[in-house]
Amino acid sequence: MEKRVVFNEEICKSCSLCINVCPTNVIFLADYLNGKGYRPASVIEQEKCISCAKCAQICPDSVITVYRPEKKKVSV
């Protein structure tokens, strides 16, 4: 499954604003620390991400890159 949302973990400051706005609640703070001692935001259930990019728009540190799959018939 290609990733729809990618976090630049070294820059994340665990502020959790992204977690607060994610409509599908798939973002969570990883249980390991980045170089600055913050638990970076992360997504495991990539398939639940709808690529709305709200997380990226509220992120103060440009940590998040959002993708969406090519236009192909979505299996119902």
Binding site: A53, A56, S62, V66, Y67
Partner: peptide
Amino acid sequence: MITVYEKTKGLT
């Protein structure tokens, strides 16, 4: 995959 959102080149 199509990029929906990425860091702007307006920032370093």
